[in-house]
C-alpha cells in the first residue's frame, strides 16, 4: 500500500525549478517489516493512556471510601478488565524491551565532566531497576511485606 508522504516532505522552501512527482512513503510503512515494531510501539500510547486513567480511577475510589474501592476490585475481575490488563502487560513489557535496547545510544558521551558507563553496564542497570522495582512493587501489592 504505497501512500503519498506529506506533499511538502523534503521539498525546498522555494518551489523546485521543475515539476516533481510527489514524495512516496516507503512501501512497508506503517505495518510492514521493521516499521511494524515502531508502529506498535507508538500504539502502546493508547494502553498507557488507559492505564493512567484506570490507576487514577482506582486512587480516586480509594479516597471515596470502602464501597467505592471494593467496586474497583470487583470491576477488575470482569473478563473485559482482565483481558485488557493481559494485553497491557504484554504492551508494557514490549515497550520496556524495545526502549531499553535503544536507551544506551541516547546517552550523551559526557554530561559536563561525567561520562556514562559502557553500554552493557547501562543495560544491566536498566534491567536490574526494572526487575527490582517490579518485584518489590509486586510483593508489596500482594501483601508480602508491610
Amino acid at each position: 500500500m504505497s501512500r503519498n508522504a506529506h506533499p511538502d516532505a523534503m521539498a525546498p522552501s522555494k518551489p523546485g525549478r521543475t515539476r516533481t512527482a510527489p514524495p512516496q512513503l516507503p512501501d512497508q510503512f506503517p505495518f510492514g517489516g521493521r516499521y511494524l515494531a515502531y508502529t506498535l510501539f507508538d500504539l502502546t500510547g493508547i494502553l498507557y493512556l488507559l492505564l493512567g486513567f484506570l490507576v487514577l480511577c482506582a486512587v480516586w475510589s480509594l479516597g471515596s471510601g470502602e464501597a467505592a474501592w471494593n467496586g474497583v476490585l470487583e470491576r477488575n475481575r470482569s473478563m473485559l478488565y482482565v483481558g485488557f490488563h493481559a494485553i497491557a502487560l504484554v504492551g508494557v513489557i514490549f515497550v520496556g524491551i524495545r526502549f531499553f535496547g535503544f536507551f544506551p545510544k541516547a546517552q550523551p558521551p559526557r554530561i559536563g565532566p561525567v561520562k556514562p558507563p559502557p553500554k552493557p553496564v547501562i543495560l544491566a542497570m536498566l534491567y536490574a531497576l526494572w526487575i527490582g522495582v517490579t518485584a518489590f512493587l509486586s510483593i508489596v501489592l500482594a501483601g508480602g511485606i508491610f
Partner: peptide
C-alpha cells in the same frame, strides 16, 4: 525506485 520521502525530479 527513487528514494522515498523525497519529491522526484
Amino acid at each position: 525506485g527513487p528514494l522515498a520521502n523525497f519529491p522526484v525530479v
